[in-house]
Computed example of a mutant assay.
Amino acid sequence: MNQRDVLICQVWADNDRRSAGRTVRVGAVSERHAYCTVLTAAAPGGRTGRRVRILIERMRPTSTGYRLVELVDGEQ
């Protein structure tokens, strides 16, 4: 995954089975990290709205990575 592939406003889902159901929205991107806000928590009653930093290299559809679930308007 390349930094240019991760864009602001995209929604990504956590593939790790320990975090099933967790989604995040990208708010900013640096050379190595995506700075995201948790939209849905993995556990019922979990914290949403929390800011997290995720390595760009984890933004790929592997068992412990992330998968893209919502594109940015105008993105194909």
Results as ranks from 00 to 15, higher is better:
Asn2Tyr: 11
Asn2Gln: 13
Asn2Ile: 13
Gln3Trp: 08
Gln3Met: 15
Gln3Thr: 15
Arg4Pro: 00
Val6Tyr: 07
Val6His: 05
Leu7Tyr: 04
Ile8Phe: 10
Cys9Gln: 15
Cys9Gly: 05
Cys9His: 12
Cys9Ala: 08
Gln10Pro: 06
Val11Asp: 10
Val11Pro: 03
Val11Ser: 07
Trp12Gly: 07
Trp12Ala: 06
Ala13Val: 14
Ala13Thr: 11
Asp14Arg: 13
Asp14His: 14
Asn15Pro: 03
Asp16Cys: 11
Asp16Phe: 08
Asp16Gln: 09
Arg17Asn: 10
Arg17Thr: 14
Arg18Asn: 04
Ser19Gln: 15
Ser19Leu: 08
Gly21Glu: 04
Arg22Asn: 03
Arg22Ala: 07
Arg22Asp: 00
Thr23Leu: 12
Thr23Lys: 10
Val24Thr: 08
Arg25Met: 15
Val26Gly: 08
Val26Trp: 03
Gly27Cys: 13
Ala28Arg: 06
Ala28Trp: 09
Ala28Glu: 15
Val29Thr: 07
Ser30Met: 07
Ser30Arg: 08
Glu31Asn: 12
Arg32Tyr: 14
Arg32Asp: 12
Arg32Lys: 14
Arg32Cys: 11
Ala34Arg: 01
Tyr35Arg: 11
Cys36Pro: 01
Cys36Trp: 01
Cys36Tyr: 00
Thr37Cys: 05
Thr37Met: 11
Thr37Gln: 09
Leu39Ile: 14
Thr40Asp: 12
Thr40Gly: 00
Ala41Val: 08
Ala42His: 06
Ala42Gln: 01
Ala43Gln: 13
Ala43Leu: 14
Pro44Thr: 02
Gly45Glu: 02
Gly45Ala: 07
Arg47Phe: 03
Arg47Cys: 02
Gly49Gln: 02
Arg50Asp: 11
Arg50Asn: 06
Arg50Gln: 14
Arg51His: 12
Val52Ala: 03
Val52Tyr: 08
Val52Pro: 00
Arg53His: 13
Arg53Pro: 00
Ile54Asp: 02
Ile54Ala: 05
Ile56Gln: 07
Ile56Leu: 15
Ile56Gly: 01
Glu57Phe: 09
Glu57Leu: 13
Arg58Leu: 14
Arg58Pro: 06
Arg58Cys: 13
Arg58Thr: 13
Met59Trp: 06
Met59Arg: 01
Arg60His: 14
Pro61Arg: 05
Pro61Phe: 06
Thr62Lys: 04
Ser63Gly: 02
Ser63Ala: 15
Thr64Gly: 01
Thr64Ala: 04
Thr64Ile: 12
Gly65Val: 02
Gly65Tyr: 03
Tyr66Asn: 10
Tyr66Cys: 05
Arg67Glu: 15
Leu68His: 07
Val69Thr: 12
Val69His: 06
Val69Asn: 02
Val69Met: 06
Glu70Leu: 06
Glu70Pro: 01
Leu71Ser: 10
Leu71Val: 03
Val72Asn: 03
Val72Tyr: 09
Gly74Asn: 08
Gly74Asp: 02
Gly74Arg: 04
Glu75Tyr: 09
Gln76Trp: 13
Gln76Glu: 11
